[in-house]
Amino acid sequence: MTIREIAKLLDASVCIGENRLDEEVEYGFASDLMSDVLTLKDTPMLITGLCNVQTIRTCDMATLDIIVIVRNKKVTEDMIELAEDNDMVILSCSYSMFKACGLLYEAGIKPLY
């Protein structure tokens, strides 16, 4: 499904990355633990409730560039700036991690393992 469809499904706002909304997403990975994100070999969409600049930096290092922030956390300006520099997409939704993952899974987003 496209990032645009994901944003609609999760009733999410697009914090940055409007130019990439028609890109397809196949895989998702959910974690609040950046140490886990750093062990990924693949580059899925990240669903996380950890909302700080290290979330974005970790994704940059792990070459993940589509991030869904859950639980209505405030995405800060420095996060948006860093994401913009690295051509990333940040969506923000008010749903819990469980609900967001459930909806995405039901809609066909695949797990890595």
Binding site: L33, M34, S35, L38, T39, N52, Q54
Partner: peptide, 15 residues
């Protein structure tokens, strides 16, 4: 709180 400290850093460097 920053999402680290899970005891995976050094092992992940090794990998």
């Amino acid at each position: 709180d920053m999402g680290f400290g899970a005891g995976m850093g050094l092992p992940n460097m090794q990998k």
